[in-house]
Amino acid sequence: MDVLVQGAITSATIALVALGFSLVYGVGGIVNLAHGSFFMIGAYAAYAASEADMPLLVAAVIGVAAAMLAGVLLDRLVIAPIRHQEVAVLIATLAVAILVQSGVQFFFGGLERQLPGFVEGSVSIFGVDLRQTELLAGLMALVTIVVVLLVLTRSPAGRMVRAVAEDEEAAVLVGVRPERVTLYVLAIGAGLAGLAGVLVAPYGVLTPTMWLLPLTQAFAIVILGGLGSIQGTVLASVVIGFLDRFVAFNVKDGGIKIGLVTVAVILATLVLRPQGLLGKVAR
């Protein structure tokens, strides 16, 4: 039961991170190795704001805004000039990830930090005791995902994004500018990852290297779900989310083995089913 309830929450927060990662790849063909850093920036910015005695809600908004700002800056300053050089983008974004890591280390030190909970107390769901803040995180993430999916499928802007993701040339012909779309998607994707960071910050642990696991998990999700496939991303998020909690609860010292299991999933998928669960063929 623990696994089911907490797995659902983890799935939702991971999906927030993975959606942006997958969309940016689908739209701009850009694999952003600094995507996990948005998660970290959201968490640390919210933490810093709350340390400065701001109300938690404001801190949360600041966290998301900081991540979005980082997304915009990353796109304009780093990615835009080298957009079409795939390997250069990979190297530059990894360098950004390390830059952010060393910045966080410099300003906050290497010690573990935690944000106060948004709500106090705990509740019991299906017989599982949960901190209320954890439940809130799950609900918020779920609502956000639903909203994002609705926007993507129903609104003109969302359809435009999907048009570019599916066929860049055709989209250009009807007047869509892929660079613009990439910018918006990157900013929104960064905001989503930042939100995930904010939501997790009260019960997760903040360290300067916290960006790597969400990045790895987002990668696993994209591999499992297939490139640029939105349904695939959501479905794979559930798989990875539940796996995450399953390992955490049922394996000895599970907490530190999550990444290992995730990598095993990645390698196994690459060998057995390189096109993902329901995705297009991987390159």
Binding site: V87, L215, T216, L260, T262, L270, R283
Partner: peptide, 23 residues
């Protein structure tokens, strides 16, 4: 497993394997 991979896939696979070794 990386033989068929290129660019981003290879990057992420190698990156995450090294991360797993830390764990």
């Amino acid at each position: 497993p990386c033989l068929r991979l290129k660019g981003p896939y290879l990057a992420l696979a190698t990156l995450s394997v090294a991360g797993a070794l830390v764990q």
